[in-house]
């Protein structure tokens, strides 16, 4: 009995210590990001790898989500005869919440797993040690560049997601009602204010930070060979997705507090 309690206590302590480490790791990345020297070329390379290469995934998902949301919105608004509201409803839903959140979750899958596995792989094959042995600050070179790249890429990906979702929504709508694109996008933006677009897009910077610092932490500190790499990758996705959702709740509350609609 005492053993069980002891074990439970130990795992709680380990979990808390791990969380604490993770927070320190993330903050260290932020501080290091603003201190010279800057790994500019490597950061750009990471933006290309993490951002540009996710673009097709994000754009395709955006289109699909737009189409599906448009169909759902239509079926419920049709009952009130409010089909003309479809673009408006879709625009609000996408830009305020669905766009940022879905982009974040997709990225926590694509980028979180990628960073976790890549850094984990580099750790267990001693590539990180090799970097250090070559007088390179591996934390700065590997982690900070990815954190910065993700923080830049996420809002951009969100914008691309929103745009393709609106295009997808229009495509679905025009096949049914023949609505013109001009009418569609003007209406999509008809109920959106700056306080809808700007905070919700910028909050994905936080998503980018969470994804990259969590998966960076797990990958950078991976151990135990191929199995350890797989574990780092899986846990990166799970932890970053969960933390992202929780952070989203907090941020939405905060945004609504700052910009009551």
């Amino acid at each position: 009995m005492t053993n069980v309690i002891e074990n439970a206590g130990r795992s709680v302590r380990t979990a808390l210590a791990g969380a604490g480490d993770m927070v320190v790791f993330g903050l260290r990345a932020l501080v290091s990001a603003v201190r010279p020297p800057f790994e500019l070329v490597e950061t750009l390379r990471q933006i290309q790898l993490l951002g540009w290469r996710s673009l097709s995934l994000i754009a395709t998902s955006g289109l699909a989500v737009g189409v599906v949301m448009s169909m759902h919105t239509r079926s419920s608004l049709e009952r009130f005869g409010a089909e003309s509201m479809i673009p408006t409803v879709l625009g609000i839903a996408m830009i305020r919440e669905t766009g940022p959140l879905v982009t974040g979750l997709l990225s926590s899958g694509r980028l979180g797993a990628g960073i976790g596995a890549e850094l984990g792989g580099m750790r267990v094959t001693e590539q990180i040690d090799a970097l250090e042995s070559l007088a390179v600050d591996s934390f700065k070179y590997l982690v900070v560049t990815r954190v910065v790249a993700c923080m830049v890429a996420l809002p951009l990906l969100t914008i691309f997601f929103n745009v393709s979702a609106i295009v997808g929504g229009w495509a679905a709508e025009t096949t049914v009602s023949g609505m013109t694109f001009g009418y569609y996008y003007r209406n999509a933006f008809s109920n959106i204010g700056f306080s809808d677009l700007i905070p919700s897009t910028l909050k994905t910077v936080v998503f980018g930070f969470l994804i990259s610092s969590i998966s960076g932490y797990l990958g950078y500190n991976a151990s135990g060979g191929a199995q350890g790499v797989g574990q780092a990758s899986t846990r990166s996705v799970v932890l970053s997705a969960i933390s992202l959702i929780v952070a989203n709740v907090v941020m939405v509350k905060f945004i609504l507090f700052l910009f009551p609609s």
Binding site: L44, R45, I47, Q48, G51, W52, L55, I95, V152, A153, P155, L156, L157, I159, F160, N162, V163, Y185, R186, F189, I192, G193, F194, L197, I198, T201
Partner: peptide, 24 residues
């Protein structure tokens, strides 16, 4: 690759600006 990054970053920023413009 550098130009891909440029397309990605500036493309996103331009779309964002268009959104702001539509609202404004």
């Amino acid at each position: 690759k550098k130009s891909l990054v440029a397309v990605f970053v500036f493309g996103g920023l331009i779309l964002f600006a268009v959104g702001l413009f539509l609202i404004g």
